[in-house]
Design a protein around this nucleic acid. Sequence first.
RNA 1: GUGGGUGUAGCUCAGUCGGUAGAGCACUGGGUUGUGGUCCCAGGUGUCGCGGGUUCAAUUCCCGUCACUCACCCCA
Length: 423
Amino acid sequence: MSTFSAPKGIPEYFPPSSAAFSTVRDTLLRSAALAGYGYIELPVFEETALYARGVGESTDVVSKEMYTFQDKGGRSVTLRPEGTAGVVRSVIEHGLDRGQLPLKLCYAGPFFRYERPQAGRYRQLQQVGVEAIGSDDPALDAEVVAIGDAGYRAIGLTGFRLEITSLGDTNCRPAYRELLQEFLGRLPLDEDTRRRAEVNPLRVLDDKRPEMQALLADAPLMVDHLCDACREHFDRVKGYLVDLGVKFTENPRMVRGLDYYTRTTFEFVHDGLGAQSGIGGGGRYDGLMAELGGQPLSGIGYGLGVDRTVLAAEAEGLTVGDQARCDVFCVPLGDAAKDRLVAVAGALRAAGVRVDLAYGGKGLKGAMKAADRSGARYAVVVGERDLAEGAAQLKELSSGDQRPVPLVDLVGAVHEALALPTP
RNA sequence: GUGGGUGUAGCUCAGUCGGUAGAGCACUGGGUUGUGGUCCCAGGUGUCGCGGGUUCAAUUCCCGUCACUCACCCCA
C-alpha cells in the first residue's frame, strides 16, 4: 500500500500555525500598501527565456535551480524562481509604464527553485515583493528599504539587521570588475573559485571560508571605485535612510545572486535562523526594463521571504496572528436547542462575529471542552430550560462568568460584549 | 551536486546487551442526570521506513535502499 506525500521540500501551513503565516504575509503587504503600492497578481510560470534573459544565464538560479518543462504545445515554460522579471514583463506588455512614474506595484505568492532543502530553504518559497519602476530618485531607494524594514517591525521583529551597499552601474562596474579579476588572478584559488572569478568575480568576495576571507582582506571593493554619479546616489540614499530613522550597516562585500542588480542593493539578515539567515533582500535594476524590451527605465524592488520571516518570529518567541478560531462557540443541549442555535450562529456571522457550534451531538462536557479549545471568548449555552424561557446563557470563558440573555437580543449582546464596531 | 545525522502510535520521543514495544501530548467517554480550562479513571491504534542477509527467533546485528533532516553550495 502506498500513500501520498507532498512534493519534496515544500512547506505546508495548517491551523494553528497557518495563522502566523497569513498574518506575516498580510502585514508585509500592508506595509507596502501604506506607501501607495498597488497589488499585482501574476502567473506562476512564464516562458523560460524571460528568466534566462532577465535574471541572467550565469546565475545559479537560472543555470541549475529552475523548474523548467515543456507544455503540450511544445513551449518551454518555467515556474517563476523570483518575481521581478515577471513584473517587468507585465509592465512592458501592458504599457503600465505609460502613466505617472514611478509605477509602484506589490505582490505575494509562491516561487520555485530546485535546490536541496534545508532549514529555511524550500523548493516552494513564499515572498512578498514590491517594485517601483521609472525613477532613479535616491529617496525612492530609501522608501523601498524603509517599507521593508517597517513591515518586519509591524510583525514585531527586532532581531534583524539591514545591510546595504552599492554595486555601481554600467559606467563604473566594468572597470572595477577588471580590477577585481586582476587581483583575484594573483591569488592561489581552487578550481571552483577560479571559475567563479571568471563568471561572476563579485561573488567570490562573500566566500564564507575563513582562509578565503584572509586572502581577500585587501581585495578592491566596489564602493571605493564608484563613479561620481553612483557615489552621490549612494550617499543620498544613506542620508534619506537616516532621515527615515532606518538603522543600517554597510556591507561592501554583499553579493546578490541575480545579475540585474545595479547601484543600491540591500539585505535583511536575522541571526536566529541557522545557515539561511537572509529574510529579505532587493535592490536597483536600472537596466532590466530595456533588457526585456521596454523603455530604458530604472527600477528598484525587494523580495521578502514569508517562510523565513515566520521562522524569525518563532526564533524571537513572538506569537503572530490570532490564535483563536472564533469569538463565540455555541453549545446546544438537545435537538430543539440545536435547531435554534444553528440559526443563531448564522445570525451572529451575518453580524460579523466569528462563530462555531458543537456538532455531532457532543455531550455538554465535550461541547464545553470544544468551546475551550476553539479559543472563543464566549460560549452560548442553550438547553430545554433556556428555550422555555426564551433565553441563552452567555458565558465568558476566561472568567467563567455567565448570565442569561434573551435569545432575541443575543446578537446585540454578543456584539456589545466583544466590543465590535456597530455595523 | 557533495557530506553528516535520524527513521518506533496522529504529534514529541523512550526502549529492547536478539524473545514481535511503552510514555507524555492529542482524541473519545466517565467521575459531575446543564458547564470547559486543574485533577482522577477508562478506551483504541503500530506492516518498529522498505528489501535482503545471519539466526530456532530480527524492531534490535549486518548489507542495501528510500525518506526525512542539518550543513556545504546558493539564496527568500
